[in-house]
Design a protein around this nucleic acid. Structure first.
Lengths: 131, 131
DNA sequence: CGTTCCGTTTACGTCAACGTCATCTCCCCT
DNA sequence: AGGGGAGATGACGTTGACGTAAACGGAACG
């Protein structure tokens, strides 16, 4: 329970990322490990954030977008104005995501059509050859 | 029937791309317009290929992947094996896209939750202030 | 004490898919 | 002859997310 802190190597192994990536995320202010001298010690907060970072990446968000979402998660929620701003940002992102989803749906539908066409042609060829 | 050939401007207008893009595709060997002196003349083959290129891009293929598919296609468009390979690749891509969409849906749901939470907090604050 | 690791900083390199100049050549119009 | 466009050819710029190399510091091992 005392050992909340992880070195960079442990982090890399735990999350399958490179040290360079972690330093890079820190430089972009997505992580803020504490320093023991010059070395980085990652807290449980850093680990939670990294998890979200990696998930965001899988979703196709840019690091900058992820940073904004992270800020949304932990920005001081006592100020109504701040909170209002962050929900605005969230709503924008949501709109983007939904339009992205729509585009993706369209592409999927189109690709399926193509696929069906291709398979049909293959089938026809096979019958020709067989005859 | 004689005027199979299009200048670069016509191509751009017809497909809504920039001249730079067309030259770039040519440099990457995705297109090979004939030359009248120094000028490019795009054939019907180029137009067919460009159509495929743009579709490929909508599907999220890289230009390099598209080039390979195009090459595969005119290596021998009558061979079933080639067509089969293409549909295999397409199916893989489709799977990727669908999993991507699933993740996106998940992310949208989470973000919506966050949003609802934020708005609820704002509402509560407002009532506090009003009281 | 020397070597081997792990870690740090600084800084330049990379890849994709073009955008954006800067120049240059032709051709047409008046 | 002068001007205006369209098109061509370099060649450098851009953005995002790191990779990679250089040069250094401290700890641990034998």
């Amino acid at each position: 329970m005392a050992d909340n802190l992880m070195g960079i190597r442990e982090m890399c192994d735990a999350f399958d990322v490179t040290p360079r990536a972690l330093r890079f995320y820190e430089s972009k202010e997505l992580l803020s490990p504490i320093r023991e001298g010059t070395r980085r010690l990652f807290t449980k907060r850093d680990r939670a954030r990294l998890k979200l970072i990696l998930r965001g990446k899988r979703f196709g968000f840019s690091l900058e977008e992820i940073r904004q979402l992270l800020d949304l998660y932990d920005e001081d929620p006592t100020q109504v104005t701040q909170l209002t701003r962050t929900t605005e940002i969230a709503r924008e992102r949501l709109a983007q995501m939904e339009s992205q989803r729509a585009e993706l749906d369209e592409a999927i539908a189109e690709l399926k059509e193509q696929l069906a066409w291709g398979e049909q042609v293959i089938e026809a060829r096979r019958r020709e050859t067989a005859a």
